[in-house]
Amino acid sequence: MTDNKTSGNRLGVKGWFAGGRWGMERYIYAIHRLTGLGLLLFLTIHIFESSMRIYGAPVWERTMAFLDHPLFAAGEFLIIIGFAFHAINGLRLVFLELGFGVGKAIEPVYPYRTSVQVQRPLAIAVMILSALLIAAGGIDLFFIRP
């Protein structure tokens, strides 16, 4: 059957956001992946920026002056958002992946109560804790540090 002429119907990255029941866990999943990629990008830029040290003090000073732009402060805030969410949701995933917080196997009786509902408080806690960390990071970055 697979050798016949057929239409590919794979959703691709769009499938991170659509195609199911649109539960909050799907969006947490997508944001976790995007923040992971964002942090990886930051790490690459950070290593490049730090490597400017090897060219001596004048180059380093110029690099620091270049990075002392409000645009990079906004970028730093994005890193705080990404880090806060990715770290806390990562802990949630480790917890779930060790079989905790998903409930026990039960006989499915309609209306079905799945592990998604069982772990929902954890997902909500991730959102609240992330928001608190992001707020704290934002206050530090924009109000305390300057």
């Binding site: 539960g23 866990e25 992946e97 998903v102 799945t114």
Partner: peptide, 25 residues
């Protein structure tokens, strides 16, 4: 990474997401 959609859409209440987490354990 536990999007949970498989369990949410399962018409028979099988809850594959739960089974996968238990398998990881």
């Amino acid at each position: 990474h536990y999007a949970g959609e498989c369990s949410a859409v399962c018409p028979k209440g099988v809850d594959p997401a739960r089974a996968i987490q238990f398998m990881k354990r």
